[in-house]
Amino acid sequence: MTETIQLGGAKETGFFPRLRTIIGRRTEGRGVILLLVILAVLAFTQPLVFTALPVTIGRIALIGIVALGLTAVILMGELDLSVASTLAASGVVVAIIPDLRIAIPAALLMGIVVGIINAFFIAIVGIASFIASLGMLFALSGLAFVLSNEVPVSIANQDAGLAFGQPLFGPVTPRILLFFLVFIAIQLFVTKVKAGREFFAVGGNRQAAYDSGIPVKRRIFTGFIISGFVSALAGVIYTLELTVATPTAGSTVLLASFAAAIIGGNYLKGGRGSIIGTLIGASSLGVLQVALFLSGVQVPVQNTLIGAILLIAVITDPSSLRAISARVRATLPDRTKVEAQ
């Protein structure tokens, strides 16, 4: 070995320092804390939640699935507001085509096309993602109304729909199964697959990603296609379960999915976060919703609570806390010695 230089930052040895480093590297802290707090409170006030496990998992799947796709986009520092109406439009597509064997692929294909159009405006034209996807949100909700003639549409094959709502085994309904498949697929994609891992680079330092030869635009396309596909899948699930598609479906999806992703520690400016975090965020919200429902709390109040949680989550984001603490610190110190506590 030739000469070396020690600059600090070497690997910690010993179990506890190691453990501390590992925990320090995770991003899911807030989600875990919120989940634990909710579970602890419920253990005393609403223990029923723990017995209603199938319901709770179903709820988590409902909230979480769109959030998972959204997370792929957020990791790159982009937003996809169009998820809500992608869900509604794909749900309508499933209902208006009589043959489910054609309807489901058509709906999923629509999700992919939506992703491609979003990414086109964002990566090629250069429009900020929130505004491009906002236009898309609006246009697609219009499309959902057009396709459905502004009324709820029942699916032709009611039996298939009813069967879809039944558990496959144990408490696992197709919805829950699909949710976990999506979770595993995206989780593996962003942690194991090179293209997925590069999402973090695209979000964390886009210039560096370009300079290293990462095809940034192609990654943005991939991200929005994932998000479009997953929300279309959610639309398919909604419609099949309810056996009817409404053009206004998914009105609170935007709120719940952003809340789940942000609570889970996904940094809105990109580069920091995890799919597991989103799962934890969705779990907190799902458990909370079931508990509120069991306690007889009305839906508007539930929405208020989730809105409040989202607001708190977004202003306690590390960069927001830095901003506010910098502001406080910039005004306070007018002393030269550390004062006694």
């Binding site: 937003l79 952003f258 942000i262 508007p300 977004v314």
Partner: peptide, 13 residues
């Protein structure tokens, strides 16, 4: 966008 999305639901709720 996220802040006002949250306050929308808080307010409407």
């Amino acid at each position: 966008v996220i802040v006002t999305l949250a306050t929308t639901y808080i307010g409407l709720g």
